[in-house]
Design a binder for these strands. Structure first.
Lengths: 220, 220
DNA sequence: TTCGCACTACCGGTAAACCGGTAGTCCAAA
DNA sequence: TTTGGACTACCGGTTTACCGGTAGTGCGAA
């Protein structure tokens, strides 16, 4: 019996590469691809899926919120998170959302295959770097861990757009909310993360993987 | 006859890792380490060095400017550039400064050993990703290439500090110049790169490798 | 039901970014 | 010698970021 897999990542090339990688195991069948959290939910509602390989950095609804909603509707689903870096905040958030595995894109492809097999057996799998991150988070006193700055879905969405260079007015237009509301989210982000300007927010967004590390496009 | 190597990178851990890597070849002897461009010049003036492994992202004088000045004083020296990404601008700038090799940190360690051996034989060595970048730069018409936005040493320095979240006043204090002068460099950067806010400058700095991709420090 | 949280939205204010211009010195290349 | 680039520095202005507060709605948990 093959495993029906949904690939969720905003980069088509990466999805194709993953598809090629997973093709090495005849037991694994990629039945669909999604480029955003909204697409993931729509596809999972429309056809049977066993496992989702979910990038946390996607435009619109990100991987964390998508995982939360996905598992609320389809509790039997298994989710494996993917991101460029093992940021403590996003690792713990995604695991709290119900993901069974988490590996960084820096790992070898075999790591993903191992994660899929392990997760299918009902166990969890974290790549070494992520495992160390989680261990660090737990070691730094459970109290602090519980009180750690947890970003809301809206805050992550705003953070993503700030890191793309949009102004509060532009973000408001994009999300169909007032610019003043965007400013509130911006201030809450800075307070929670103890960062105080756009440059630091952008660095955090890129490092945490919520925003892809690509060259900005310029005005053209 | 062993090869006297100088390692230049602002991260001690990376220098140590490189040292361990190079120790696998008994012909290679790491005779010194530097954490900035200024240190590289001082060391090369004080003791004989055959080859420099130079990170382009260093605080103060970066690897490009350091390579330019280094080769002006010691033309027989060989320089191999290292960076996190194969940004077109910085690759071409470093090669124009006289570097004989360029590899990204994403490559395996064997790639660096191969580069060192090749460069010592008097030939140039570029890792595949960098080679492709250079090819692209040349293919996109020599005219455009010549007219490409070339950043000055001072501009790269200012860009680095902008990406760290410093204000123009703070950057001016750090570099011992007026804040108004920093604003000029900032505007020239934005004009040359066709970017128009701190977020995009920060993305560019991180992606190009001039600024390390680390989590911002908070107010601490 | 009450409480907390997320999300929404506004007020006012200061600091900084962003945009345009002019202008001097220094140095190296033409 | 002249020209051009890099670096320095200032003038003016508008927009946005940043910081502090208040406040209403809806929703889910205690």
């Amino acid at each position: 019996m093959s495993l029906r897999i949904l690939l969720a990542d905003d980069h088509q090339m990466f999805r194709h590469a993953l598809r090629a990688l997973l093709a090495r195991d005849p037991e694994l069948e990629v039945v669909a691809e999604a480029a955003s959290g909204e697409e993931v939910l729509a596809i999972a509602d429309a056809q049977p899926v066993d496992l989702v390989c979910m990038d946390i950095a996607m435009p619109g609804m990100d991987g964390i919120e998508a995982t939360r909603r996905l598992l609320a509707r389809h509790p039997a689903l298994r989710v494996i998170g993917l991101s460029a870096f093992a940021d403590r905040q996003f690792v713990t958030d995604l695991l709290a959302a119900g993901a069974r595995g988490y590996i960084t894109k820096g790992e070898a492809g075999d790591e993903l295959l191992r994660a899929i097999r392990t997760v299918c057996e009902g166990r969890s799998y974290l790549c070494p770097e992520v495992a160390a991150t989680v261990a660090d988070a737990l070691r730094d006193s459970p109290g602090v861990y519980a009180a750690a700055p947890r970003l809301t879905a809206r805050e992550r969405q705003v953070l993503q757009l700030i890191a793309e260079g949009l102004t509060s007015v532009q973000i408001g237009d994009r999300l169909h909310i007032a610019a003043s509301t965007v400013e509130v989210h911006r201030r809450n982000l800075m307070r929670k993360l103890d960062l105080h300007n756009v440059a630091e927010l952008t660095r955090y967004a890129i490092h945490s993987g919520i925003s892809p590390n690509v060259t900005p496009g310029g005005a053209g």
